[in-house]
Design a protein around this nucleic acid. Structure first.
Lengths: 206, 206
DNA sequence: AATTGTGAACCTCTTCACAGCT
DNA sequence: AGCTGTGAAGAGGTTCACAATT
C-alpha cells in the first residue's frame, strides 16, 4: 500500500470526531467546506485526504455523515477493540487509565506494568500491576498490540526493547527521549514539554 | 522576524534535551553528526535548524555543549520562568501539576481553575482551585502567560475564549477539538487519541 | 582531517482551479 | 447550481554536496 502522510492520518482522526459530533446533532449530510470550516483548514485539503482512500461523497450533495464516519473508522482501524498495555503507573499513567476518550475509541488498557516493587502486585482500576520482567508472558496472554510508555526517560528505551522482544510493534511514548526501533516498529511520541516550549518560543518572539 | 517552521522549533526542544544529557555526562563538545545520530535524523537537518538562528559551532571541532544548550534555551525562552494556569483539575490536569519535566524547564503552575463547585475552593498541591469566572482577576494577579486546557471538549472553546478576553495568548490544549482563535493567539494541541489512532491505522495496514 | 554553514536540488505536502457528476 | 474529485502548480521542508574554517 502506498505511503500516506502522517498529517493526513491525524486529520482523518479529526474528521472522525467532527463527524461524531455532527451525527449527535442529527446531521445527515455535510460538505467538505463545512468539515474544513470546523477544523480551520481548506476544503481542498479535506477532499484530498479522502481521495487517497476512495470516493465517499456525492457531487453536488456532499457526504453522508454516518457513511463517512464508518469509512474513516474502518481506515483508522477503529472498527475493532485494541488491547493496550501501560508501562509506568505513575501520575501520568494512572490518569491515562481513566481517560474516557481512549475507551470510547476502542482502546482498552488490559495490562499494567511497573518496576517499582511497592506498586507491583497492587490492583489499580481492577487491573493487577505486573513486573516488567513478566512482559512476554502477559502481553501474549492478554493479546497486547499497543503499549503506552509512561516511564521515566532513562528507562524508556529498555522498556520498549522488552516489549519489542515480545512482538509488540506499536508504542505511544510519553518519555521525552528519542527511541530507536527496527523499521517494522512504530513509535508515536506524546511530548508535552515540546509543545509548551513551542509556546514559550512564540511568546519570546514578540 | 522570519517564520521558522514548527518542526524546527520542536527539534530544537529535542536538541536541548540531548545537550542536557550530554552535559550531565560531562561532555564538552558534540558534532552535528552525533546529535543527529541520537535523535535518528540527519546531520544536515541539525545544522540547518541552527543556521536559522546564527552560527554556534566551530568548523572541524563541533559545538560546545554548554554554549549550545544555553543558546537554544534562550531561543526557546527557557531562560526565564513561565507562570502557567491550569484549567480543568480532573485526572489529566492533576497529573500535569506533578509533571516534573514542566517544572525543570521553568513552567510553573501558579493558578488552577475549574467549574465543578465540588472542587472550586479546595487546595491541590498548595494551590487553591478558582472558579473560571474569576479568570481575569487571577490571571492578572498571578501574571499568567500560558494556560493549559484540560477540560472536556464541549467547554474547551469557551474556557479558552475567557482566557483570551483576559489577555492570555498561548494555550496547550488537551481537549480533542479544534479551537478557533484570533491570529495573535497560539494554540498547541496535545491530542493523545490522535496518536493512538495513528498506531491503530498503522497496525491495520498489515 | 574533521566538521560546520549553506545554496541548490530534491522531495513532499498543500492549494488552486476546473472538469465532471448529481 | 452545487459540490466532489483530482491533475497541475505552488509552497515549504529536507537532503545533498561542497566551500570554508579550525
Amino acid at each position: 500500500m502506498k505511503k500516506i502522510s502522517d498529517s493526513t492520518i491525524s486529520r482523518l482522526s479529526t474528521y472522525f470526531r467532527t463527524l461524531q459530533r455532527l451525527i449527535e446533532q442529527n446531521r445527515e449530510t455535510v460538505s467538505s467546506d463545512e468539515i474544513a470550516e470546523i477544523n480551520s483548514i481548506t476544503s481542498a485539503q479535506v477532499r484530498k485526504d479522502f481521495s487517497f482512500f476512495g470516493t465517499f461523497g456525492k457531487r453536488g450533495l456532499g457526504y453522508n455523515t454516518r457513511d463517512l464516519k464508518n469509512a474513516i473508522g474502518q481506515i483508522l482501524g477503529l472498527d475493532k477493540k485494541w488491547n493496550v498495555a501501560l508501562a509506568g503507573v505513575g501520575n501520568i499513567g494512572k490518569a491515562l487509565i481513566d481517560y474516557q476518550e481512549f475507551k470510547t475509541q476502542g482502546f482498552n488498557f488490559t495490562a499494567l506494568f511497573d518496576i517499582n516493587l511497592n506498586i507491583v502486585g497492587k490492583t489499580i482500576k481492577g487491573l493487577t500491576v505486573n513486573h516488567i520482567d513478566d512482559v512476554c508472558r502477559i502481553t501474549k496472554n492478554a493479546n497486547i498490540e499497543i503499549a503506552v510508555i509512561a516511564v521515566p526517560a532513562n528507562v524508556a528505551q529498555e522498556v520498549i526493547d522488552s516489549f519489542i522482544s515480545c512482538g509488540v510493534k506499536a508504542f505511544l511514548n510519553f518519555a521525552p527521549i528519542t527511541i530507536k526501533v527496527p523499521k517494522d516498529v512504530l513509535v508515536k511520541n506524546e511530548n508535552m514539554s515540546i509543545e509548551l516550549e513551542a509556546l514559550s518560543y512564540y511568546l519570546s518572539q514578540k
